[in-house]
């Protein structure tokens, strides 16, 4: 089979490009440590969230030194808790599940983004920087008022967080 020399050159360059792309993604995983949402959490009964320890009362709680867990329920057409308040410069793990249909959980303009599938729990961990406010949008069509489904993520200073927590806000 005859292949022109230039075409062979291009074939080699193409393979190099592909390896470079795969290498970049691998670097992202091992260097900065970007992890994928995966099957780390067991399946859950979407119809019985009110009997679940974590999701009957969606909330943020401290689970370790400077480590926090946010239990979030997405449902037509909102997120609970709203707003989600977490302390600055901490490690926050979001556990997000759906009470009804498939939703999305996207902290707009950031890399925090996951599908939310009924019967499954999406687990994503982020490290917060300084105080900031972000919008949360549902980025998967979920029904007639999908466009109204939004929430808020507030990253507040450690002291403000403790003040809110002790203020009985619960969130």
């Amino acid at each position: 089979m005859h292949i022109h020399a230039y075409e062979k050159l291009w074939l080699a360059a193409s393979v190099l490009l592909i390896l470079f792309l795969l290498g970049s993604v691998t670097y992202g995983a091992v260097g900065p440590g970007v992890a994928m949402v995966s099957d780390s959490e067991p399946a859950i009964d979407a119809g019985a969230l009110d009997e679940d320890d974590r999701f009957s009362e969606p909330r943020v709680e401290q689970v370790g030194e400077n480590e926090y867990a946010a239990y979030v329920v997405a449902r037509q057409f909102g997120f609970q808790p709203d707003p989600i308040v977490v302390p600055a410069n901490s490690t926050v793990t979001f556990y997000v599940t759906s009470a009804d249909v498939i939703h999305g959980f996207e902290v707009a303009g950031t890399n925090a983004n996951t599908m939310v599938v009924p019967g499954e729990v999406s687990e994503i961990t982020v490290e917060t920087d300084g105080p900031a406010e972000y919008g949360i949008v549902c980025n998967e069509y979920c029904g007639a008022a999908h466009h109204a489904m939004e929430g808020k993520l507030e990253v507040v200073s450690q002291s403000a967080y403790e003040e809110r927590a002790s203020g009985g806000d619960g969130e």
Partner: peptide, 9 residues
């Protein structure tokens, strides 16, 4: 489905 829960990395 990169961002789907329930599918291993």
């Amino acid at each position: 489905q990169y961002l789907d829960p329930g599918i291993a990395e």
